[in-house]
């Protein structure tokens, strides 16, 4: 049963790593704007779309 000591230690360490990761993401501003990236990802890379088949992406 002593293995439990090790496992408990592991679980707490893992949890701390995730907490740290969350703080890092918070600090680097990843949660500052949660709307715009969802629109940005829908843009096509290429600009040479023929006028005839322009597709309408409504917001």
């Amino acid at each position: 049963m002593n293995i439990l000591y090790f496992l408990v230690g592991c679980s707490v360490t893992m949890a701390l790593i995730f907490l740290g990761a969350f703080f890092w993401s918070l600090k680097s501003g990843q949660h500052d704007d949660v709307y715009t990236p969802s629109v940005r990802i829908l843009f096509d890379d290429e600009t040479d779309i023929p006028e005839s088949d322009k597709d309408h992406i409504s917001d």
Binding site: D32, D33, Y35, T36, V39, R40, L42, F43, S58, D59
Partner: peptide, 28 residues
């Protein structure tokens, strides 16, 4: 006010290459 605005303002470098990055915060 719309996704076109985001697209246009994030492609300002096409008008003037000296503007190398533009990022929109849509809600603000």
């Amino acid at each position: 006010h719309c996704s076109s605005c985001i697209w246009l303002l994030e492609h300002l470098y096409k008008i003037n290459a000296a503007i190398f990055s533009s990022r929109i915060d849509f809600l603000k």
